[in-house]
Structure formats: structure tokens, C-alpha cells
Amino acid sequence: MEKKAEHNIKAYGNNFTTMTPGSFAIKLRTCKIWQLIRFIVINIKMLIVVNKSH
């Protein structure tokens, strides 16, 4: 079984109060179709900030 991100949480350790992504969220990070869409969206957002900064 693939190790899930929440398995890295240590009870009452440094990371006990943080959120962790589920397997679907992690899959989306390298899903080529979804990331192509995000690529366009992120570029637009960045260009707006770059434009505001010059």
C-alpha cells in the first residue's frame, strides 16, 4: 500500500497540527491535463502582478 502523507504525522510532534494533502490532491499535482490548465491560470496571475510591479 502506498504510504499516505498523513502517515508522516507524529503524535504531538512538530507536524501534529498541520494539514496534509490526500491522494487525489497529490495526483492532481502531476496530472498533465490539470497542470496544463493551472499553467495558463498561474501565468495569467503572475503577469498581472508583474505588470502591477513595473
Binding site: 492532481l28 499535482r29 502531476t30 496530472c31 498533465k32 497542470q35 496544463l36 493551472r38 499553467f39 498561474i42 501565468n43 496571475k45 503572475m46 498581472i48 502582478v49 502591477k52
Partner: peptide
């Protein structure tokens, strides 16, 4: 509205 962040393959391509 102009402060955002996300992690993924798209970021690597950029």
C-alpha cells in the same frame, strides 16, 4: 487578491 501560491508540475514548467 494578488498574493497566491500553489504547488504542482505547472510551477516546474514555469
Amino acid at each position: 487578491d494578488y498574493t497566491f501560491g500553489e504547488i504542482g508540475l505547472a510551477g516546474h514548467w514555469i
